[in-house]
Amino acid sequence: MLKNIIGLLAGLLFGFGLLISGMTDPVKVQGFLDVFGAWDISLALVMGGGLVVAIVGVQVAQRQQTSWIGTLIEMPTKTTINKKLLIGAMLFGIGWGLVGICPGPGIVLLGTGQWQAYVFIPAMIVGMLVYQWLEPRLG
């Protein structure tokens, strides 16, 4: 029960963060990526601010090892930089640049009633399902 409440609370806070930061405004996101045009550097503060807090959290997590609800804190264990990682990041970067929407803001835009989100998110789901289907075949 507590786990679910924390999940909901984190989702709400994350959504507020995205809204306040400007990440949910695709024009602003593309302005941030438009380094060689009229460059809007605001969103550098988003990753910067997020990182500062998260670094502290990670330090605490590494000392504690167990969460508030008593479960083990799970950290990804993969360390190899391979083709899958880089090609995946490249495809994501191209898609992100094309429309200025990444997964979190896309989901938040469902709630603001932007019709575009109701096209983007189903397409994103299809992309994810294609990967799920292809994954066992990629080896």
Partner: peptide
């Protein structure tokens, strides 16, 4: 872009 973001983030 949705297809690229969905597939790319999983890959």
């Amino acid at each position: 872009a949705g297809l690229l973001v969905g597939f790319g983030t999983r890959l």
